[in-house]
């Protein structure tokens, strides 16, 4: 794990076009180790598209997405890595990955970026516990000797499975779902499903957790619980979070750094306080031209 404050994720000149539509236009930003970085913007601004590019679900039209494990000194290798054809380099416990070169599953498996979805994607017909075990697939697969040891019930696999169940139990305790462990995930209420999806992403052992509108559809109490959970993930585990959020109260309360997108273009980037008072941001959110901002602000009482 790197030192808090070092750069963890560096997005440079990211552009994503769908036919004639430019969903993300020349976006650059950094996310830092141990911080909560929020990506905000009106509907259709291109936030989910940025996530899909980072997590390998889309191949960006242009741009570079670097991610660092461990010591930030390894960033000096970035240009050399870009020149060469490799997806990443590892030097001892440090590593540097170019996410735009990796298929989606490797982004999670090797670069250790986990994500959740705007529309919850659980395995509804599997139990809550099974959902968390599927998230530990790669480590368990290794422990089961790619199934060969597992099928004969080798003790080493049994131990690994027990450890994975313990990890799942820990996370269920933390998100308050331990009493639902044996129920199908599809049976949980909406707020619980959101928390389960976060717990499941955490079970993949990520360095960066990307959450796409985790507070959407939550009531104020659940929303407050979520804030607590996200803060504790950052503090207790030193895991950095990249967060898309509509709910301004969540963003302002927990994020260290906010990036604002509008029509795929970055219009503001800074601490929550700065962003909140940026006229461009207010204009984008209220849907008025810049010069009318003050008038509107006065009207809505900002």
């Amino acid at each position: 794990m790197g030192i808090a404050g070092d750069i963890l994720l560096r997005v440079e000149h990211l552009t994503m076009r769908f036919g004639g539509l430019v969903a993300v236009d020349d976006l650059s930003f950094d996310a830092r180790q141990g911080e909560i970085t929020a990506l905000i913007g009106p509907n259709g601004a291109g936030k989910t598209t940025v996530f899909n590019c980072i997590t390998g679900f889309y191949k960006p039209s242009e741009g570079r997405i670097g991610l660092c494990h461990g010591d930030a000194a390894i960033w000096s290798e970035l240009d050399a890595l870009t020149e060469g054809g490799n997806r990443g380099i590892k030097q001892g416990s440090n590593g540097l990955y170019l996410l735009e070169r990796m298929p989606d599953y490797l982004v999670t498996q090797q670069a250790r970026v986990a994500r959740t979805f705007q529309n919850i994607r659980l395995f509804p017909g599997m139990t809550v516990l099974e959902n968390l075990l599927v998230a530990q697939h790669n480590s368990l697969m290794l422990a089961s000797g790619y199934t060969l040891l597992g099928i004969f019930g080798f003790p080493s696999y049994r131990r690994a499975e027990k450890a994975s169940i313990d990890l799942a139990r820990d996370w269920l305790n933390r998100v308050g779902l331990i009493h639902r462990a044996d129920d199908p995930a599809g049976d949980l209420p909406y707020g619980d499903q959101r928390r389960l999806e976060i717990a499941r992403a955490m079970c993949t052992d990520p360095v960066l957790l990307c959450l796409d509108e985790p507070a959407a559809g939550l009531n104020p109490r659940e929303s407050a619980q979520l804030n607590e959970l996200l803060l504790s993930i950052g503090n207790d585990h030193g895991i950095s979070i990249l967060l898309i959020e509509h709910d301004m109260s969540v963003v302002m309360e927990i994020s260290d750094h906010v990036i604002v997108l509008d029509y795929g273009v970055k219009i503001s980037d800074g601490a929550p306080e700065e962003v909140r008072n940026d006229p461009k941001v207010i204009a984008a959110y209220l849907g008025v031209p810049d010069d009318e901002v003050e008038k509107v602000e006065a009207e809505v009482g900002l």
Partner: peptide, 25 residues
Amino acid sequence: RLPVGRAWEALREDEIACRALGINT
């Protein structure tokens, strides 16, 4: 009851979620 079997069923449930969890579908 092994990871491979759970991954099969997870695949049936939601392939995209599987990929997001690092499973080579």
